[in-house]
Design a protein around this nucleic acid. Structure first.
Lengths: 365, 365
DNA sequence: GTCGTTGCTGGTAGCGCTGTCAACGATCCT
DNA sequence: AGGATCGTTGACAGCGCTACCAGCAACGAC
């Protein structure tokens, strides 16, 4: 006689085991480690499960095994294009795996991050993806004490908690400035918003490059803690140019700001790049189709997410990567907005259409 | 003498109950329905839990109670700005509640949606948020059979599965066209990408408005199944104007396309709005700061997400909303790009700066 | 032939929590 | 005063799965 069904009418592992003529524990093993079964039992359990339409109860599994199949992801923003690309990578890489993604938004607050981390860790996640390297001391301690693999994403730095994948925002900013130098620009402004740690490091890279060239001037830097936007880019640029009308280039901490600067230039009839060059950061899609097209520093956001999730899953399953720190690099994509200064004051608009994209400076470590 | 601790060293409900001097079940009730306890026991359990730093084991809770505290969310895209705003609303509204969000990406495939739905439902979610009203028959049946509250978001239509929150894309498109008519435009093109059901309904609204005015012409419509982008907007507009050079306005199915059209006009030195007016859809932030500023149909995306999550949580807890279908409406934000046609062929750029934003046409049902 | 050793399988005993039901005293009504 | 009702509490029995360990057969080494 058969066992009695569960109240909810759902198929349990026991039913599958019974149909397959094996013990429940053998059926259980089939789902966790099929190689441990003989081929005969394996196929019997498989067909029994399929026939009954068995779906494992994750709560029971988590309770019995004392661990979940959840990957926690802590990111600072849900709106920022940058993170939506990273997230897409994470979701894509986790799809098809047994792990599910649990997302939380720190809103750029490391205190909030600490709180969420505590919450996550209490549920014993299988793995954790956290943004950046600027955790609180408390968070850092929790991460180090956590008994699950952890990937820090978005940037690289010394002392990884575990694994790390990103690139140097400092070097990327320096490369952008080097490109502007190469194009003959000297008085280069910096426009930044939000000023999270990564933007701050871009500012540091800019400042270092300028200082080395003997060109640094505090008054060329305009920043705000306000969240970034296109409109804000225009406003910050207005501030900058009011203070320093003689600038010949602007390095923007992200592409939204760069687009705002471009619009503001257009509003003021300032020719770009002939009077002012513009360089953005991230290389969002629209940078390639604006008029003029906008130079930017391409970052590998999708790869960052997908690689992080893939590395994490490997590590969860015991296969730790050979190199725990991965530098994904960046590429300066040179476009019209930062072309070399020309003698002619104002080219015809049609001229831009003919211009081709230059070679790019890639940093692939 | 105390009970023995759990192997993992974690605090269990039993420990809390013991310290509080109550039975475990009373302690359990404290977390689920504190009102059912006497004030004395309530405070004792509360302080005991705090003192021990008790964190409930969700897996055990889910197993024992036969239900999870997970809200499943099915959206078609993670990259689209539209959905990131909706998501932010959902996450914000769920924060602080006991429910956690489980996100999945259908990639605009209703078959994928069906698959994910099956997966979700098998885990007995507390509630479900699904995008749109175009599920497969199978999906529809599963949704109707599900024993949890469900909210359909992004648009409204007949026969809600349960609750519904959105707006009429058809009406919104008609309002946009009505605005263009009011500004004196007649030969209005339509540019659309991806052509998911909501974009299709915008096209239907456009077509209906044009037909009623006796102005519909199939050749004014350019669409593609390709995912949307700014660059694509330029390309589609190039197609459109090659086919129909005499158009005087373009209604774009979203703002990215509109921006692409604007750039393409600039590239071709077509004055906007004097030769061609542009209207977008969604009113993303950059629309207000482009040059010229771009008219768009504002949609309440954040509110859609936050209200959907709030309604769902209320419904899960037994308080069903008085009205299960909520129309969040839309607003035509009139900006420079669709101003009335003028006699002067090409205004000075500076003129735009002075222009003020017009009154707007709001649809608040 | 005996004794590991390996590969596979099964039994037992929970994981930490909650649903159900019964019990109890207090309060209220007739 | 007696009974009904309400509010509060606790005992019991799992929820469905897996960790742990034992058992058993087959095999090879000595």
């Amino acid at each position: 006689m058969g066992r009695k069904r569960t109240k909810s009418g759902k198929i349990r592992l026991a039913e599958v085991a019974e149909l397959a003529g094996v013990s429940p524990i053998t059926a259980s093993r089939f789902f966790r480690n099929p190689e441990a079964l003989s081929v005969a039992k394996r196929t019997r359990v498989e067909s029994a499960a399929r026939e009954l339409g068995y779906v494992p109860n994750l709560a029971a599994r988590a309770l019995a095994s004392q661990r979940t199949e959840v990957i926690g992801v802590l990111i600072p923003s849900l709106t920022n294009n940058v993170f939506s690309d990273v997230l897409r990578g994470i979701y894509d890489a986790s799809e098809g795996s047994r792990y599910s993604i649990q997302l939380s938004n720190t809103r750029y607050s490391i205190l909030q991050e600490e709180k969420l981390l505590r919450l996550f860790l209490a549920q014993k996640p299988a793995g954790l993806i956290v943004t950046g390297i600027d955790q609180t001391t408390e968070s850092r301690a929790m991460l180090e004490a956590a008994d699950c693999p952890i990937v820090q994403i978005m940037e690289i730095g010394p002392n990884p908690v575990d694994m790390m994948i990103g690139f140097s925002h400092y070097d990327a900013a320096r490369a952008a400035i080097a490109h502007l130098f190469a194009q003959g620009h000297r008085r280069i402004g910096f426009v930044g918003a939000r000023m999270d740690p990564r933007v701050q490091r871009r500012l540091d890279g800019y400042a270092a490059a300028m200082k080395e060239a003997g060109l640094f001037d505090q008054r060329l830097t305009v920043t705000t803690a306000t969240p970034t936007s296109v409109t804000l880019g225009g406003a910050l640029f207005a501030d900058l140019i009011a203070r320093e009308p003689a600038i010949d280039a602007v390095f923007c901490a992200n592409d939204d700001l760069a687009l705002g600067v471009l619009f503001e230039c257009r509003r003021r009839e300032i020719p770009v790049p002939d009077q002012i060059a513009i360089v953005g950061f991230n290389d969002l899609e629209f940078m390639a189709s604006s008029v003029p097209t906008l130079t930017s520093v391409r970052t590998n956001r999708y790869e960052m997410g997908s690689t992080a999730a893939a590395m994490l899953i490997e590590a969860i399953e015991g296969k730790r990567p050979e190199k725990p720190v991965l530098d994904l690099g960046f590429t300066v994509i040179e476009r019209q907005s930062s072309q070399a200064q020309r003698p002619t004051a104002s080219p015809r608009a049609g001229e831009w259409v003919a211009a081709v994209q230059n070679d790019s400076v890639t940093n692939d470590p």
